[in-house]
Structures are given as C-alpha cells and as structure tokens.
Design a protein around this nucleic acid. Structure first.
Lengths: 260, 260
DNA sequence: GTTGCACCTACAGTGACGTTAGGGACTATG
DNA sequence: CATAGTCCCTAACGTCACTGTAGGTGCAAC
C-alpha cells in the first residue's frame, strides 16, 4: 500500500518537461525541495512533488515570479482573496498584449513598405515605427484636446490608406533630405511643400484640420515633440523655414504671426 | 551655421526619456557612444545621437536584442533583406501573443470560478489552469487523430458552458478526494462515477464520444498523460478501479477487456 | 567654507535559468 | 582488472538589459 514511488531527477525532469537545471534551481531557492538520500545526495521526487511542480508551472504561466509563487504555494486551497492578485496580473498581461500588438502592426507595416519601396532611409523608417509606438499616447493626448470624432477619423484608416500614407511620408521625407539647403524660392522646394500640404490635408481631412488648427500653437509644438522626427536639426529648421516662406507667399498666413 | 548643439547626458536623458544609467550602459556596450570631453570626461550627445537612439528604441520596440541592434544600427538604409529578420521577429511576437492570450483566458476563468465557488482546492485549480496551457498541443494532437469537426465541437464552447464545466470538474474532483479509499460498491462511489460519466457525455457530445472511443487505448493513455491530473497516485488508481468496477457492473464493458 | 548639483567610474545585484568544470557511484564491456 | 558510459552531485561563472550604490571631481551659490 505504501509503495511511495519516487523518481530520480532525470526521470522527473523527463516526466514533467522541466529541465534538471531548473529543478536544481528550484531546490536551491527553496521552491521545490525533494527528499535527499543522505548517503548519495541524490534527490528523490515524490508523487506530491509532481503536484507542487504543476502548481509552480501553472502560476508561472499566469505570469507570477518565483518569489511570488513561493508565497502562494503552501496554501492547499485558494479563495476570492486571490482575485486581487489575479486582477493585477491581468492588467500587466493586457499591457503586454497591447505592446505586442503594436509591435506586430509596426512590423507588418514595415514588411509591406519594404516590399513596395525596395529601400528606405533608416531614419525615416524608424520614425515610422516610432509612430505606432507612440500612437496610444498620441490618441489620449488628442482626445483630451479635440473631439472623439476627430480622433476616430484620424485613426480608423484602412490598411491600404496607411500604406499609401507611409509611402507618401517616405517620399516627402526623402525629398527633404535631398533638397535641404536649397533656397526656399527654388521651384523644386515650392513643389515639395505644395505636395506636403496637400498630402496632409488629404490625410487629416478638413474637419480634423480645422479642429487641429484651433489648438494653441504652443500645444501644437508639444504635439510635434511627441512625434520623433526623422530629420536632423538642420533639415528640420530648413523645412520649417521653407514652410513659412511658402505660407507667406501664398497668403495663407501673415508674416508677423510667426515671430517667436 | 555649424553651431552643432550638443547635450549633456542629463538634458539628453530628459529629452529622450531614456534614463541616464541606461545611456551609460549603451555607451559601455558600444551601442551609442557620444563624444567625450577629454578633460572633464563628460559625454556630449549630438543631434545625430538623437536619431541613433531613436533607431535603438524603435528596434527594441520591435523585439530585437541590443546585440542584434548593434549589428543593424550602422546601416543608413534598409532594404527587403531586412524582411527575413522581420518575419522571424513577427513569428516570435505572435507566439508570445498566443501565450499571453492563453494566460488571460486562464486568469479570467479562474477569477470567475473563484467568485462563484468561493474556495477551490489548489491542485484542482492548477490542473484547470494547466488545461488552457496545454490546449494548443491537445488541439493539434486531436486534429491529427480525429476529425476537425470533433475538435471544433470540443473547443467552441461558450463562456458559460466552460464555466459550468469547470464547476462540474471541481465538484467531481473534490468528491474523488473525499471518497478515495471507500469500497467501489459504496452507493456514494457509484453515484460519483455515474455523475462523472454523464458529465463527460454531456460535454464531449455523442459523435465526439464515438470518435474518441475509436482511438487505440494506448493512444488514449497518452492523451491522459498530457492532461495534468489534480490527483495523487492513490487517488488516480482508486478512481480508475472504481470506473472499471462501474463499467463492469453496468455491462458497458467485458471484464477481460481491461487486462493489461 | 560648505552645501548642492551634475557629472564621472567602477563594482554589485537582479531573475530565471544555461553552461561548464570537476568529481563520485554504479554498470557494462574488453 | 582497467576502462568507458551513464547518472547524479556541487560550485561557480555566463546571460540580458538593465538598476543601484559608493566614492570621487569640478563648479556655482550661499
């Protein structure tokens, strides 16, 4: 009746799919301490140890640290008081999930882009990836300052739209890096800015444009800071000045508006 | 023109949201090495370093290790050859996502169960969590041996069904732990087994039951091994024998069938 | 003159193991 | 009987991406 079959560490490892080293480690930190043969020093894992290891593996699966598990393992049953801890785990996992999903959309966008474009400047590509990365912050920020409708409009683009926009972004950014330094009056520069404003309008949509235009300028600056730019300081300064020049030329803004 | 504004590490850290200590670290491992003032030893981060750090953060966001990033960072543009690496990252992230989703369903089930049950034996709870953990393997295993229809039927349970099933599982397992050791002829034991078979039939459904019944017995044993049991060896042996006794009593199987 | 701040280097610690070195006990084979 | 192979052991170092801490320099303000 009391046969009490035990396993050596090798068998036990095989049986449970946990590596020998891991079992050594769990013993070392006092998480799973099997009986030890005093003469040989060999570990003897019992039937009960199987259940304990199952507990450990399960709790690890739920995202608990071994230290936390050590505190939970000795209870023979769990009640609702565990729920608090479970809720915390849940939140953490949901955060992680959002991160992974964002990374995945980023990767998918990048894969498509590279397939269509062949080659992309690294800084431009990275700023695109960064866009996804900061999208959540951006959304929250925008929702506080504009309306939900505007935000929804901005972010509910179809996949194709996003791809087209990415391509546009790349081409314009590349152009900027090519033309940087040219005088603002140069027709190439004027065309670039023209395309840029048109693309922006296309993307943003008119209502959103108006909503955004109503924000403070200082606030708008903060928005710009959140979006990491693919440009160096020179490129950025040049672009801003070219934009200003364009706006003044086309009577879209009074010169004195842009003094700082 | 060549003003070349640089930042001390504190400013740079503020600006980029990366901790000073991390920047030290990146310098140490040769990932981001700013110029150093030879006399003071202070680091001077340039405009370019901002772009480099952006690259690092973005690639980290995609799940690359710093070692991998070190290899990618010096290229000024990326082409389709990057796609291979992106696909690998994608797969890894998708794996992680599946893991997290499984953990989340596990947690949600557990939260609900604890709310409804109040208190649950730890071994039983863990074996339930383990079920989700091994669900993917189980599915694959079953799909190879039975039909897709059966598998779909088995896994497309509603949330309520799952909860009900979980509760049933808990109650029966608890009963086993209570009654273990009693003679198989005891009416309580007979009732337990009766409930157990009925619950199984309810859950599995008739077609699936037939499909499963057609598998080898040795194969079925392997299935059992995959599902971690909440029982000790004694409990499990007792249950198996009680089942056999029940089957024979009710003429569902010939005694000689069960010889090993 | 000392207090505070921003910077520096250098070393240690974290978590959950993996890897490697060196050695004991047992069995099988030449 | 020597050797090889297998299983086990301890002990210590390596990994990754940091974080923390101790002790020190140089400079400005009070």
């Amino acid at each position: 009746m009391n046969e009490k079959k035990t396993f050596l560490i090798g068998e036990f490892s095989e049986k449970t799919g946990t590596s020998v080293r891991t079992l050594h480690y769990y013993d070392e930190i006092g998480l799973l301490k099997p009986d030890k043969d005093p003469s040989s020093g060999h570990r003897h894992y019992s039937d009960k140890d199987v259940l304990t290891l199952q507990k450990i593996v399960s709790l690890k699966f739920l995202g608990y640290s071994l230290e936390q598990i050590k505190g939970m393992i000795h209870e023979s049953s769990y009640d609702v008081s565990l729920n608090e801890s479970l809720q915390i785990q849940k939140k953490a996992l949901e955060e992680e999930k959002l991160h992974i999903e964002a990374a995945l959309t980023s990767i998918n966008r990048t894969i498509k882009l590279l397939e269509e474009e062949g080659e992309v400047d690294s800084a431009i590509l990275m700023s695109l990836i960064n866009t996804v990365q900061t999208e959540r912050n951006m959304r929250e920020w925008l929702e506080q300052r504009t309306t939900k409708d505007v935000v929804n409009y901005l972010y509910n683009k179809s996949e194709d739209d996003v791809l087209a926009l990415d391509k546009e972004y790349i081409h314009l950014s590349k152009k900027v890096k090519e033309l940087v330094g040219l005088p603002f009056g140069d027709p190439q520069v004027q065309e670039l800015i023209d395309q840029y404003t048109k693309a922006t309008l296309d993307f943003i949509g008119e209502e959103a444009m108006h909503a955004l235009a109503e924000m403070d300028l200082s606030e708008a600056d903060k928005l710009q800071e959140m979006v990491p730019s693919p440009f160096t300081k020179e490129e950025e300064d040049w672009l801003n000045q070219a934009m200003e020049y364009y706006m003044v030329q086309n009577g879209m803004v009074d010169p004195q508006d842009n003094q700082e």
